[in-house]
Design a protein around this nucleic acid. Sequence first.
DNA 1: TGCGTGATGTCAGTGCCTGACATCGAATGG
DNA 2: CCATTCGATGTCAGGCACTGACATCACGCA
Lengths: 193, 193
Amino acid sequence: MGRWEPNARGRLAEAAMALYGERGFEQTTVAEIAERAGLTERTFFRHFADKREVLFSGSEELRSALVDAVESAPASAAPLAAVVAALAQVGDTFFAGRRDHSRRRQAIIDANAELRERELIKLATLASALAGALRRRGVPGPVASLAAETGIAVFKVAFERWVAAASEGSLAGLVRETADQLSAVAAPATEMQ
Amino acid sequence: MGRWEPNARGRLAEAAMALYGERGFEQTTVAEIAERAGLTERTFFRHFADKREVLFSGSEELRSALVDAVESAPASAAPLAAVVAALAQVGDTFFAGRRDHSRRRQAIIDANAELRERELIKLATLASALAGALRRRGVPGPVASLAAETGIAVFKVAFERWVAAASEGSLAGLVRETADQLSAVAAPATEMQ
DNA sequence: TGCGTGATGTCAGTGCCTGACATCGAATGG
DNA sequence: CCATTCGATGTCAGGCACTGACATCACGCA
């Protein structure tokens, strides 16, 4: 089996999540992941650049969806407002119904420094893409970067809350709520939003 | 030689910088670094946790100096002001007279994704330490985190400018200048500073 | 002068990751 | 219905990062 079973990539990702969760990231070898997926170590590296990347395979789609959302926001929307709206909308479509999966994934990442590194660079890449989208809307560079970075910071906090929450609740709601709290705390009289 | 020559750690760091600069990070093996330092691969790993860490060995001292500076700031200083002042002061004492070294080091880091990952987690660690110091001054958690993250963002931009600048100029001055620009752009009417 | 101690060397081994080449299964065209 | 082709997978060999265990050396101290 393996040469003909469908969805090799998905099986690898699932096997990796399971093993990382059971015995930890460092204690899992790529050979074990491949074996559980009924494949070979070599095939794992054809689907994922390295042992960490298997946990971050969705980030490219997330990135392009976010960029699309920002670019199609009404021209009247202020920079940070456009970013927050994009994060709320796209976040919901990407994570709705996957809270349990997200929780397990985040626990794995939080438990390992290498995985935290990878997460940070993925978030930085998202911020940079958002800043680019804002600039294409005519937002000056520094403001675009600041709004993008702030938006990502908001998303981090909101995502953390969403994952930790006992009850079900939409990620989008938490993103907007967190953004409101930020503007209340950080800039009582500003017009950034 | 090697067993008795002094400053093994420094020789290793110097050899690594030189080789990373000459042929790139990936194209350099740890064995080559050790050989240039007159030591052994095994000894390299006794001084540095991994091949990347040799470029970030000063970050622990930087961290504790920043924390000290924030904690000893006048009680009247607002959170972001305290952070910016700490970054300006400590940045100067750490980097004064080492602009050329910093420039070469930054070029090496910018050229490699693994090194950028490591840099990001180091900066995140600094931000977290700064937020902790602010909280110890009585600043509420969310404000502390926001001020710390903002301060680090300011420092990143200022450092980038300092490294790129054609003329000599103090890093501290650029930090303060960048912070001023940020508050002018981001929050025209806020009282954060 | 002998002895302990910390730094370094040596050696063997594991695991991540890659290049080169073989092989299989399915689609395609005749 | 068969031959060809092509993409996905397997196999194999190897480089390099990193680690544990143990030996060895230089130095300080009794």
